[in-house]
Every structure is written in structure tokens, then in C-alpha cells.
Design a binder for these strands. Structure first.
Length: 607
RNA sequence: GCGCCCGUAGCUCAGUUGGAUAGAGCGUCGGCCUCCGGAGCCGAAGGCCACAGGUUCGAAUCCUGUCGGGCGCACCA
């Protein structure tokens, strides 16, 4: 609730009390639609109709009569059953100029895991959505006052890594630097899969792949994996995504976390080791107490050959995240572009206070919904309902490429590096056309191109499927990041000129505010709510949509005309009015820049 | 078969504790640079909010069913 709505809400609450309403319903304060009287209003009278056995308009009228209008309200008017408030522009506009600052820290730690791509080949557009979503939600939660830890899981003991490393060995390849390392390894991986399409070849190669897998589990090939990881990190960094800590699956295994997790589970009545039937010899968990309607509620944790399933490892990891297990050791891994240190779990590290969160957000696509649900079941099984509640799966739908599902094997895929390169190239071409004299054109092209790609990934609801189409994702017009960046650059340009002309310290005269200023101020006032809602719903799209709204309001303000003449000039306005307008422009600039930053997108001063 | 998600303008999408006349972008048509940046702005056309019931003063929003589409239901990761 922003500073403007809160006093209105309070005034309504007091009026309700005066009317003798003991248990008031929630009081919603909303902006009045265009062509309706007032600036803000409440439909609360409708909710009371039944309780008070009166018609809403009558209740609204009585409410208005009992109301002591708070500061800034010049008139209270009833329209239909709504109670509407008219605000004094001289009060409303300064209210919109509050600093755009992060909320004070509160609540426990929230741990965001995202990216977590297999260290075996380059990132493709499917990973793009994961990184963009995860990084944005981490930034938003941090701004909204949460203590956030960002984690990237390195599945270094997986089948896919083993296959990639085996392929290098199998084909006797030596890196020649001709392409980015992760792409080069990826090529070998694809080549191996082509060879293994032949079932006979597959069977023949299997023992050697298993041997690599064992070496990975023993941590022998860590250096190889790190080389690949380093190449992948370059891609994440170019997207403007950073992390606090990497956790390696092999470390989880080595430190015995899996064993400890299974011990915890084995103390509960939900696990068993059947001696006959299809699960003979395995360790299984019965999920029927927590998931209804399962045909077969048994879930294998340890196979009958004694090896752990992926799910079991994931449970151990989730237990560690939520502080049920400890034992991992850490040390610095590398310094990221912003200067933020990246840590990693490591056998030779020391204990550090990572993990142990009350709340986790796992950014993983929707196809993992069942395994993610199993994590909650495991937490419930060990009696930690509170932690199960705090484990959130940020499920996003898959990304299509030009209308068809991505397929690495069929070659229907595009790497993130390719997408970014193309986006930057196109942005550079637009700059060459529209602003040929721009100084740092290459740097700005990166901001615009990468921003466009990231924004395309977060502007829609995560649970909706995205169709990645070049023309759309790299569009520099309309509903896209460049629209926001342009709005910012335009505001920046005015501020530069004001500075140059010595107008920057002009005192605002709020009494000069017109309906144009009021409209813009209302748009600015929605920022805080949109960030909070984004954080609460754990989706950046709310903020992204708001920013489009704000930029549209600003562009409309900028272009407003009366009788064919500019209605809202800033620099050439009379003194006090100019000060007011400059203050609003500065606030627009700050707000757009902050919003973009929360989405991991840069805001150029000129473009 | 069972379970989860989706269905809003020609296309891509906003619209969430149920609120006033359902909004953008792209595309189409028509305007706006003697003015602080035209990557912009203003206007027009375009809607049975998949369909049928129900709850409610009020439903795109909640409930039931139907029809379409996606995904998940391994001792794979």
C-alpha cells in the first residue's frame, strides 16, 4: 500500500467505525477509471450491503458523511455505490516524489536456485528463460526487503557430463580455441549421440561412459568440469546474471549428505525396504499420505543395486538448503563482473554460512513439477510441515522456437550466445541508423540487445508457454525493453539539458500541478505496489508490465498537445512549473532505471 | 486412464484477496517533428473473455460440466 492509499484506507476504516460496523471487510482503495469522478475510490459499500441491509449508494452516502477526509483530500463524492476521493494536485504530486529505495530487511533468508544447467554443453534458449526469471526474482525479493542467497547447482556427476567428457576422450579431441569452449564440448556431445543412435555402438560404449561417471563421482575430473563451467559462466554474466554460491553434486555426495538425508527418512514410517515384489531390494518412500490419487505411491530412493536416484540426491540437497543437514565446505571460486565474489562448495574449503534458509525458490521448468512436489513430501515426512510450506517451485512453461519444441538432438535449437550476438548486432544497426553520432555505441548496443532478450523472457507469466521468434524477441518497438530504455534516455536527455542550462535546482511549485502532472504522478505511485506484488507472487512479469505502463504514461505526458502545441514543455515552462516538471522527470528516470535494474536490464543515458 | 496447467482482438499478451465502460503491443487505416530525442505520440477499425450451466448486488476472475491445446505419471537424469 503506497503512501497515498494508506491514509484513505484509514479514513474509510474510521468512518466505518463511526457507522457502527464492528468487523469491517477488507477496504480496497483503487484508482478511479477514466471518466469516473475522483482520483481514488473504494467499493467497500457493496460489501456491506448485506450486513447493513441497505443499498450500496445509501451506505456510501452515509460513509461519506461520517468521513474525516485526511490531508490532501479536497472532496469526497459518492458515485453509484462507490466512495470517491478527489486529491489536491499540490499534495499528490510531491507524494509521488518519494525516494525509490529498497525496503528495509525483514524476515528470514530466502534461497533462490536458478540456472543449474548440466555442465556438458552451451546454454540454449530454453535455459535463457530460467536465468532471466531466476535472476530477476532474486533482485526483486532483495529490493522488497528479503535476505536473498542465489545458488547455482552443478550437476557434475550426471550422465550428460559423463557423456561429454567421454566424447572428448573417445574422439581424441584437443581444444584449439576455434570456438567458445562450451560450444566445442557440446559439438562432441552431439557427435557422440549421433554415433549412439546405433544401438550396438551404444552398448559397446556404455562401459567406458560408466567409467567416466565413476571418475566424476570420485571428483577426479573436477578440473575438466570447471573449464566447461567457466565457459558457461561467461554466458550467464553476459546476461547480467550473477550468483552467490555454486554447489556441486559430487560435494553433496562426498560430504555424506545423501546418507544423512536417507537416515532421517528411514527413521520415519514412510520409508521401507521391500523384500519381494517389484521393489525388492530397493529403498522406497510411500507418498500416499501426502499426495492423493497416485496409482503407485512408492518412490525409489535407493535402487536395488544400492545407487541413489536423482530424486534422492535432490532431497538431500533440499534438506541442506533448509538447514536440516550441514557439512558442506566452501571457498572463493571467482570474482564476477560486478565485483561480487562467487563461492563454491569444495572438498578443501571451510564451513561457511550458506544454506539454512526458511524459504526456497527453485526455478525449474514445469515438467519437474512432480519431482519438486516430492521434495515437499520428504520435508513433510520428516515432520517439517513449516519447511514444506516454504519450499516454492517457480515453475515456468517451456520455450518453443519458431512454434516448434526445442530439440537438441534434431538440431532445432539456438544457443544463448548466438541469440545475444544477433540481438546486439541488430541493436547496433538501429543505432547506426537513428543515432549515428552516439559515443559509446557498442556498449549501448549490448545494453539494448541483451535487454530486449531478457525482457522478452520475463514480460509474460511464467506458466505460459513462450514461443521464441527472432522478430518478436529482438523487436525494438512496442512492448519491449528498448521502449523502456528509450523512455529513460529521453528523460536523461532533458535532465542533461536542464543541468547544462543551470535549471536543475529550480524549486518546484506544486500548486501549479495540472491534470497532466497528476496522471504521471499516479503512474509513479504504482511502482512500490508493483514491486511488492511481484515479490509476493514470485514473478517478475508484474513489474515488467508496470514499467511498460509507466513508460507509456511518461511518453504520453511528453507528447501531450493542446491546440497542436506542446502542453507540457519542461525546460521552457515558467519557473515554479518548470521545477515541478523537472522533479517529475527526474523521478521517472530514477523509477524506470530502478525497475529495469530489478529485471537485470541496463538503462542507458543515451541510445 | 489419472493428475496439473492453459484457452481474452487477425497474431503475441496484460487484466489475482470478484468491482465502475475488458486494456496494450504487432499488423491494418488516418493524423502528429518551426517544440525538451519520431526506438515516440494521438485517433479509427477489430471482443459471445472457448462453450454451457451455477454462485453473487456485481464474474474474464469463484464452482461444476463439455470441448480444444500443452505437460507429467520410470529402480532415466
Amino acid at each position: 500500500m503506497t503512501g497515498v492509499k494508506a491514509p484513505l484506507q484509514q479514513a474509510v476504516a474510521q468512518a466505518l467505525e463511526a457507522l457502527g460496523v464492528d468487523e469491517p471487510p477488507p477496504i480496497e482503495i483503487q484508482e478511479t477509471p477514466p471518466n469516473q469522478p475522483g482520483d481514488y475510490g473504494t467499493p467497500v459499500a457493496f460489501r456491506l450491503a448485506r450486513l447493513l441491509r441497505k443499498a450500496p449508494p445509501q451506505i456510501a452516502t452515509e460513509l461519506a458523511e461520517k468521513m474525516h477526509p485526511p490531508e490532501g483530500v479536497v472532496r469526497v463524492e459518492v458515485a453509484g455505490g462507490y466512495v470517491n476521493f478527489f486529491l489536491d494536485p499540490a499534495w499528490l504530486t510531491p507524494a509521488a516524489l518519494q525516494p525509490v529505495a529498497p525496503a528495509p530487511k525483514q524476515g528470514g533468508k530466502v534461497l533462490v536456485e536458478h540456472t543449474s544447467v548440466n555442465p556438458n554443453k552451451e546454454l540454449h534458449v530454453g535455459h535463457l528463460r530460467n536465468v532471466a526469471l531466476g535472476d530477476a526474482i532474486a533482485r526483486i525479493l532483495d529490493f522488497a526487503g528479503r535476505q536473498v542467497e542465489v545458488l547455482n547447482y552443478i550437476d557434475d556427476t550426471g550422465r550428460q557430463s559423463a557423456e561429454s567428457l567421454f566424447a572428448l576422450e573417445h574422439y581424441g579431441l584437443a581444444y584449439d580455441g576455434s570456438k567458445k569452449y562450451d560450444h566445442w564440448v557440446g559439438d562432441a556431445y552431439v557427435r557422440l549421440h549421433r554415433e549412439m543412435e546405433d544401438g550396438e555402438a551404444k552398448a559397446r560404449l556404455e562401459p567406458a561412459i560408466r567409467a567416466v561417471l565413476h571418475r566424476l563421482e570420485a571428483g577426479e575430473l573436477r578440473g575438466e568440469v570447471e573449464k566447461l563451467l567457466a565457459a558457461q559462466l561467461e554466458t550467464m554474466w553476459s546476461l547480467n546474471a550473477e550468483y552467490d554460491v555454486l554447489v556441486w553434486e559430487s560435494d553433496i555426495m562426498r560430504e555424506g549428505l545423501l546418507k544423512k538425508a536417507l537416515e532421517l527418512l528411514e527413521q520415519t514410517p514412510y520409508t521401507s525396504r521391500p523384500t519381494e515384489g517389484k521393489y525388492a531390494g530397493a529403498l522406497v518412500m510411500d507418498t500416499s499420505a501426502f499426495i492423493e490419487g497416485m496409482e503407485d505411491p512408492y518412490l525409489v530412493l535407493l535402487r536395488s543395486d544400492g545407487t541413489a536416484t536423482y530424486t534422492a540426491k535432490d532431497i538431500a540437497f533440499q534438506f541442506w538448503k533448509m538447514g536440516l543437514l550441514s557439512g558442506l565446505r566452501f571457498r572463493p571460486f571467482t570474482r564476477q563482473p560486478s565485483g561480487r565474489e562467487l563461492y563454491t562448495s569444495h572438498p578443501e574449503g571451510t564451513p561457511m554460512p550458506f544454506g539454512g534458509a526458511q524459504e526456497t525458490i527453485n526455478v525449474i521448468d514445469v515438467r519437474q513439477s512432480y519431482p519438486q512436489q516430492v521434495l515437499k513430501v520428504a520435508l513433510e515426512a520428516v515432520g517439517r510441515h513449516d519447511l514444506a510450506e516454504g519450499a516454492y517451485h517457480l515453475a515456468y512453461e517451456t520455450v518453443l522456437l519458431e512454434g516448434r519444441p526445442l530439440s537438441g538432438r534434431k538440431g532445432h535449437t539456438v544457443s544463448v550466445d548466438e541469440v545475444l550476438e544477433e540481438a546486439v548486432r541488430r541493436a547496433r544497426a538501429v543505432i547506426a541508423e537513428k543515432n549515428p553520432g552516439l559515443e559509446n555505441a557498442d556498449a549501448v548496443a549490448r545494453m539494448v540487445g541483451i535487454g530486449a532478450v531478457r525482457f522478452a523472457m520475463v514480460k509474460t507469466e511464467p506458466k505460459k508457454q513462450i514461443d521464441f521468434r527472432w522478430e518478436q524477441a529482438l523487436s525494438f518497438e512496442g512492448d519491449a525493453a528498448p521502449y523502456l530504455q528509450y523512455a529513460h534516455a529521453r528523460a536523461a536527455s532533458i535532465m542533461r539539458k536542464a543541468e547544462a542550462e543551470g535549471l536543475a535546482s529550480d524549486e518546484p511549485d506544486f500548486s501549479r500541478a495540472t491534470p497532466y502532472e497528476v496522471e504521471l504522478a499516479k503512474a509513479l505511485l504504482r511502482f512500490e505496489e508493483s514491486v511488492q506484488k511481484s515479490a509476493e507472487l514470485k514473478t517478475p512479469h508484474v513489474l515488467a508490465q508496470y514499467l511498460l505502463d509507466l513508460a507509456a504514461a511518461w511518453n504520453a505526458y511528453y507528447n501531450a498537445k493542446e491546440d497542436g502545441k506542446p502542453a507540457t514543455p519542461v525546460l521552457t515552462a515558467e519557473e515554479g512549473l518548470r521545477g515541478l516538471r523537472l522533479a517529475l522527470v527526474a523521478q521517472v528516470k530514477r523509477t524506470v532505471a530502478t525497475g529495469l535494474e530489478l529485471l537485470g536490464i541496463a538503462a542507458p543515458e543515451a541510445m
